[in-house]
C-alpha cells in the first residue's frame, strides 16, 4: 500500500551508511562530553538504525550502537581520536547505547541517550590470556587502601600542590607478585603538598588541574611496596578566553608520557601545554 499522504515514512539505511556514521559519531561525542567519571568511549559498531522524518523539518535517527572503553579518562583533554581502545587483555569494557539523534540543516544534535556499560566476561578474558588480572569492584577495601596509599606516596614526593582523590576509575588484583593495581583521578588543590596538615581544608583550584594516577601496591612482610605514576593534564580553564582574530586557541595534546619531570613547569610562551608525568 502506498503511504497515506502526509504520513511519516520510515527509512532503513545501511548501518555503515556515511550519514548514519556521522549520526553515530555525534552520539559518541555526546557521551564523552557529558562524562565526568570513568573513561571515554569510542564507536565500535552500529547495530541498528531507523530514520524518521521530523515535522516540520529534519530527520530523527534512532540508533543502537556498541562502544568500547578507551584508556583516556573522562577528565583527560586528549581528543578521542588520539585515545587507544582498552585491550581485551586489560579487561575491556563495552557500552550498549540507544540514541535519538536529530539531523536538521546539516547539523546533528542528540535528543535522547541511554547507555549501559559492562565488562567483558571473565571466560573471554581468560580464554585469550589465562593469567591476566580481572577488574574488581572499586569499593573493595584492598582497592581503596591501594589508592589512599598511592596518593599519599605521590603527595609526599611532590613539591607542588596537594592533590586530592577525585575518583577510583579501575582496579585489578594481580596474582604474581600479589598486588593491587589501581587507576585513580586526582585534582590539584590550593594546599601545598609538603605543608598539608588537614586535607579536608584543601579546595580544588578554580582553574581545574586534573591527573590520572596508575599505582601498584604490593603487600610485603615488612610493610608494603607502593609504585605510583601520575600524569597531570594541562589546566582546564572554566571558560574559554576570547582569542584575537586569526589566532587559534591552543589544541589539547595527547597525554604522552614525558621522559622525566620532577616538578610541573610552565610551557614556553606560545606553545600548547603538555601533560606532566610525575
Amino acid at each position: 500500500m502506498p503511504p497515506q499522504p502526509g504520513a511519516p515514512v520510515l527509512k532503513l539505511p545501511k548501518c555503515d551508511d556515511p550519514e548514519v556514521e556521522q549520526a553515530a559519531l555525534a552520539a559518541v561525542d555526546h557521551i564523552n562530553q557529558h562524562l565526568h567519571q570513568g573513561y571515554k568511549h569510542t564507536l565500535n559498531r552500529i547495530d541498528k538504525v531507523k530514520v524518521w522524518p521530523r515535522r516540520p523539518f529534519g530527520e530523527v535517527f534512532h540508533l543502537e550502537i556498541d562502544t568500547l572503553e578507551t584508556t583516556c579518562h573522562a577528565l583527560d583533554p586528549t581528543p578521542l581520536a588520539n585515545c587507544s581502545v582498552r585491550t581485551q587483555t586489560q579487561h575491556a569494557v563495552e557500552g550498549d547505547c540507544d540514541f535519538h539523534v536529530l539531523k536538521q540543516d546539516g547539523q546533528f544534535s542528540v535528543l535522547s541517550a541511554k547507555c549501559e556499560s559492562t565488562p567483558d566476561s571473565a571466560e573471554d578474558v581468560h580464554r585469550l590470556c589465562p593469567d591476566c588480572p580481572l577488574l574488581i569492584p572499586l569499593n573493595d577495601s584492598r582497592v581503596t587502601h591501594a589508592a589512599d596509599a598511592a596518593l599519599a606516596a605521590f603527595n609526599a614526593q611532590n613539591n607542588g600542590a596537594y592533590y586530592q582523590l577525585m575518583e577510583i576509575a579501575r582496579a585489578q588484583l594481580v596474582p604474581l607478585p600479589a598486588s593491587t593495581y589501581v587507576e585513580f583521578a586526582v585534582g590539584a588543590t590550593d594546599c601545598v603538598a609538603k605543608e598539608v596538615t588537614d586535607p579536608t581544608k584543601c579546595n580544588l583550584l578554580a582553574e581545574k588541574q586534573y591527573g590520572l594516577c596508575k599505582a601498584t601496591v604490593a603487600e610485603k612482610l615488612a610493610g608494603e611496596d607502593v609504585s605510583v605514576t601520575c600524569t597531570i593534564f594541562p589546566t582546564q580553564p572554566a571558560a574559554p578566553q576570547p582569542q584575537p582574530d586569526g589566532v587559534a586557541a591552543p589544541a589539547a595534546e595527547p597525554a604522552a608520557p614525558a621522559a622525566d619531570a620532577a616538578a610541573p613547569a610552565a610551557p614556553p610562551a606560545g606553545q600548547p601545554p603538555h601533560p606532566q608525568v610525575l
Binding site: P13, C15, D16, N44, K48, V49, D66, L68, A92, D120
Partner: peptide, 25 residues
C-alpha cells in the same frame, strides 16, 4: 528462473549490523 550471480561477484553486504571497528566482546 533463478539467475546465478556473475562469477567472482562479492556477496551482498547485509545492511545491519555494521562493521566492527575494533573487536567484539
Amino acid at each position: 528462473f533463478l539467475i546465478p550471480p556473475p562469477a567472482g561477484a562479492a556477496p551482498p553486504v547485509p545492511p545491519c549490523p555494521g562493521k566492527i571497528r575494533h573487536f567484539k566482546i
